[in-house]
Amino acid sequence: MSKSPKLLKLIVLSILSTVAMLLMLLDFPLPLLPSYLKVDFSDVPAIMAAFIFSPIAGVLVEGLKNGLYFLYAGAGDPVGIVANFVAGTLFVLPVAIFYHKYKTVKSVISGIVMSTMIMAIGMSILNYFLFLPAYSWIMGWENMSHGVKLSTIVVAILPFNTLKGLVVAMLFVPLFMKMKPWIEKRQLVYNT
């Protein structure tokens, strides 16, 4: 085993961020929603990091993932990158905190449902006060009216984030059940 746990942790988090970025490139549209709202599994490696190390490690992976995406896919949309980071953070933190408290499959299921709710509601609020105004400022749509903002959120942002959370949960829960022993072994190796 490596002598310096700090270096190893740093490298593991970097490589998990790469995995996350690659999963971000493999995005796919959801049925019933417009094609530009795409879902990807890039939050899964971040949750993995948050489970094995600490919730903050998950946030770091989310940040690096978006930095890599920016360098690779180019700067199409800076607001989108910030929004993706915030959404990822809101999604990773609750489930990781819940998991570290109880460490059972049940706690992960209820945690990820809670994560989905927190992300969907949090992103709705942030879109209302931050991201939609930022977009409209850059695009020169002057002040978007409250009605327009509210209907955008109710029609698109809230259902999209809820569905996205549920899709990631549908992948992550079976993955977690398969990898639980492996995750626990990693925790022993890295955190002692």
Binding site: S4, I11, I15
Partner: peptide, 20 residues
């Protein structure tokens, strides 16, 4: 994803060893 994660960790351990 299962083999991808396992091999990612393996690579990380190898790199940490090599760097040290």
């Amino acid at each position: 994803l299962v083999p991808l994660f396992v091999s990612a960790f393996k690579r990380a351990e190898e790199l940490a060893m090599a760097m040290e």
